[in-house]
Simulated assay, not measured.
Amino acid sequence: MILSAAADGEPFIRWDWIGDHAGQLTDLTVHHLKLALLPILFGLVIAIPLGVMCVRWRWLYPPTLGIANVLYGAPSLAFFMLLIPYFGIGVGGKADFTIIVPMTLFSLSVLVPNVVDGLRSVPDPVRQAATAMGFGTLRRLIQVELPIAVPVVIAGARVATVASISLVSVGVLIGNGGLGQLFIDGYSRDFTTPLVVSCVLIIALALVSDGVLVAAQRLLTPWARRRTR
């Protein structure tokens, strides 16, 4: 998708260009959000059971964290290239997983430690009280331990989400980077408007997503609100 129009002597921001391309900007923003948030969702689906296992079997945590950190330290572009033969290149459909899979793996270096820390923050007397009330291991995990761990887990999700929204732009190097498309478009034509618009939209997405997670935490931990009144 190429966003047209620019020439020498352009002003720093062309508001008419933004209006003319509002539909394309909306599409890029929605696609960027999809590429950024699906990895966090998939990361939580992996990190929560993995974190539970790391708490149950403490020997599992160091190697798990080590692998997650190694994956996070790997160059994102190299990951994208490795997955192109399996998922393809381009925008939409299966090709999106060329971006989503590496971003999911990157998120684990933040999500797994926070799940472990959140579960470890549950006081032993609380666990013992739940057991004394007849809660089995699974019921205690779902109804007691995970709710108490929510603030720490969401703190990790907030960090991972903001990082993901920023990092997705790198995908433009293989033709699928959401709002990163505007970076290439603006830079290639020495046109500042797409560059500024992309930065503003990415920052706005990060702020809105962070606010949604804060609101979700408040909804999931009503007892915390009562304590602060």
Rank of each mutant, 00 (worst) to 15 (best):
R225S: 15
L44P: 06
R226K: 15
D124R: 14
I2P: 10
G90W: 01
V112N: 02
Q217S: 13
G66W: 11
P125G: 08
P113L: 00
G180Q: 07
L182F: 12
R120P: 05
Q181V: 11
V196A: 05
G211P: 12
Y86I: 13
P147C: 04
P75N: 04
A163E: 15
Y86T: 12
V110G: 03
H31C: 08
I40D: 08
M1L: 07
S107P: 05
L138G: 08
D27C: 04
F135S: 11
C54K: 04
L71D: 07
L28N: 04
L201Q: 11
L108M: 00
Y72C: 08
A7N: 10
K34T: 13
T161C: 03
L44I: 10
A129G: 11
F80Y: 06
V112I: 05
L195D: 07
P113R: 00
W15P: 02
R226L: 14
R158N: 03
K34P: 14
L33C: 11
R140V: 09
A129W: 01
G118M: 02
Q181D: 15
I100Y: 00
I89N: 10
P39R: 01
T98I: 03
L167V: 08
L138T: 14
P63T: 02
L182C: 05
D210V: 04
A6I: 09
L141K: 01
A78G: 12
R139D: 13
L25E: 07
Q217Y: 07
V200R: 09
G186S: 03
D27H: 01
L138N: 11
Q217N: 14
A216I: 11
R139C: 15
A7Q: 13
R127T: 12
R226P: 09
P123C: 06
G211I: 02
V52T: 14
Y61D: 03
D190H: 15
I2L: 10
V196N: 07
S121K: 09
G93Y: 01
Q128K: 08
V101M: 11
Y187N: 11
L205C: 11
D96C: 01
H31D: 14
V55Y: 03
G73C: 06
T221I: 09
S188M: 10
V152L: 10
I100T: 10
D190A: 15
P102K: 01
V91W: 02
W223R: 08
L83K: 02
V200C: 11
R127L: 06
A5N: 15
